[in-house]
Design a protein around this nucleic acid. Structure first.
Lengths: 344, 344
DNA sequence: CAGGCAAGCGCAATCGATTGCATCTTTATT
DNA sequence: AATAAAGATGCAATCGATTGCGCTTGCCTG
């Protein structure tokens, strides 16, 4: 046996004076090989500490048994939950998951996607970067007919499987809730409007206003990238308005939190003076004080669903494209619960 | 050209009436090929939409350019931060990261590790499962001389690279802090003692007691797996003691939080009646109220460091094994800040 | 006892990229 | 002009597993 080299089926074959084909078949439980031979082969394989070389097998089979997943940032609760869900399902089905983060950068996303292609992933699950506004790198997958599943941040113009939450309904519910609580002037900190998620949240917000016959005031909507840092100048801008809002629908929980902290420091009481709602139900939103009303997005389940869809596509059990809209849940907590507060 | 099949170097070669070797060399910028030919080849490669098949290349080169990472649970801030750090460094160095979660299960960990081996990862970065108490599957990597880096939850008996935080110092600092705050009877909710991290935290706790000449009372230490669910019965048990503690060093923030919530519901004031400290500096620990005093663990940096070490090993720039002990930082917040509270 | 047939297994090509060695062109040198 | 010395490219084996096709062997049947 060669030094420093893993045993292969040929080593096993040599040991038993049989052919590598037979070894391969035996290890794959092919019925053409007799039970007796199979047992001998498996014995020798064990003795040698043989482990199949997946690379070789993948090359020959033109299948990598690998699913790629690209998220803006791994280290974000929602995304890591999705990844966890994908991994959960993929693992059970015998797939390996390779991950990458785009850091919300368009160029990095392109590199990653190409690299995933070169690695011949069997399919790609992706939530696009904030920056991304051109989609040739993704159309590549469609052209080559490699399964592509979008989640959360999807691309409308590409026809493929999609898993989203009902952002429109979420935006609507959360706004309606503020209205029900008696807030009159509701501001909105929105995310980049090239992303459907943020666009739909805003649409839901607008629809709720319309339905309640509240005129829309454009100065009450501020668009930024919804980082904690950007929350402060945004809320400052709102407070400086001649007619400032008495409630703010924040596009995500990070912004909601930074806004809350700023308001608290300014002596503005929440929810009495100002109602705040977030979006995404980050773990901390439940435990900060006041706790943040928000919209729950089932990340883990989205991941599971995405992986299930993906695997059905890879294994050719499903041809048509589907869009799953997972329901959102309004979670009413203290930051917007003015009525409850007043009655206590 | 065959249908439904990716272009290969052979397709490019045929197009130009040259050999595949030349194409391969040209695309790898081998100086043996003339500039003129290289340009023609790159042109055709572009035209055909050629993307190298990494699988084939990896097989031939016996190198997968892939780093495996195994964590107990992806969906946990500390671990996802580490992954993010690993990905960050790995990506820049041209490596792909494949991830898996053990769910803290021994059997799943074994499967994953074997599967990573079969996938011929160039190296494995792992934080072992809570359940894991036998290490043959990991020794396999050492035997085959495949770089192995432990982080956080390491295995002392395996000689390899390790990245840990100074859990002992962390446990010490946090306990000393409680003592400085005037707490007299300090309890400890400890994690599984087969894991060095939790063992060291407890050792630090013991050392702080000893140094301050506080006798150790074994009934004040409870060992469990530190989930939020287990926090409640544990603290109940402590409260039922004839001489209950006036402060609790919780082995992680999740337990600290659930303990705090339970105490609050029981009308026990924090930090006046009971001091609480956690461990890990989960994002929420800063924003809950009272905010939780804790020990910061630099997850992202650990991931970066682990990946750097790993890549140096893979690329053979480093032979000796190193253990990096990253410093921990005591973050004093409200949950234990009795003095500050009293003076206000 | 020849022909048929199934069971059990091996040959050799294949997947796509890489590389040591060989071969063929130029170009330079004396 | 002859020949050495670069310079440019090709041949064929290799990485390890898989698989279509074909070859043996043994047993059964008429």
């Amino acid at each position: 046996m060669k030094k420093n080299s893993e045993p292969t089926i040929h080593d096993i074959a040599r040991e038993l004076n049989i052919s590598a084909s037979t070894v391969s078949r035996a290890l794959n439980n092919n019925p053409r090989i007799s039970l007796k031979t199979k047992e001998k082969i498996k014995q020798v394989a064990d003795d040698l500490g043989y482990r199949p070389n997946t690379l070789a097998s993948n090359l020959r089979n033109k299948k990598s048994n690998t699913i790629g997943i690209v998220v803006p940032l791994i280290n974000r609760h929602f995304f890591s939950s999705v990844i966890s869900g994908v991994e959960d399902v993929a693992y059970k089905a015998g797939y390996t998951v390779v991950i990458s983060q785009s850091n919300d950068l368009y160029d990095k996303e392109i590199n990653i996607v190409h690299s995933m292609f070169s690695n011949r992933v069997d399919g790609l699950i992706i939530s696009i970067a904030m920056q991304t506004d051109s989609f040739e790198h993704l159309k590549l997958f469609r052209k080559k007919n490699i399964p592509l599943v979008f989640f959360d941040r999807v691309v409308p113009e590409i026809e493929t499987d999609k898993i989203v939450v009902d952002d429109f309904a979420g935006g609507f519910k959360v706004t309606q809730h503020l209205i029900d609580q008696g807030y009159k002037r509701i501001g909105h900190l929105a995310g980049p409007q090239n992303l459907m998620t943020y666009l739909d949240r805003k649409k839901g917000y607008l629809e709720a206003l319309r339905k309640n016959e509240i005129p829309y005031d454009d100065s009450l909507t501020i668009v930024n990238t919804l980082t904690s840092e950007e929350g402060v100048p945004a809320v400052q801008q709102l407070l400086e308005l001649p007619n400032p809002p008495d409630a703010i629908f924040c596009g995500n929980d990070a912004t909601a939190l930074s806004v809350m902290i700023y308001l608290r420091d300014r002596g503005i009481r929440i929810p009495q003076d100002m109602g705040i709602v977030g979006f995404s139900n980050e773990p901390y939103s439940k435990v900060v004080s006041p706790s943040i009303s928000t919209i729950a997005q089932p990340g883990f389940e989205m991941g599971q669903k995405a992986a299930e869809l993906m695997i059905r596509k890879i294994e050719n059990k499903e041809k048509t494209f589907q869009t799953f809209v997972l329901p959102t849940e309004l979670i009413i907590r203290d930051s917007s619960n003015r009525k409850n507060y007043q009655s206590q």
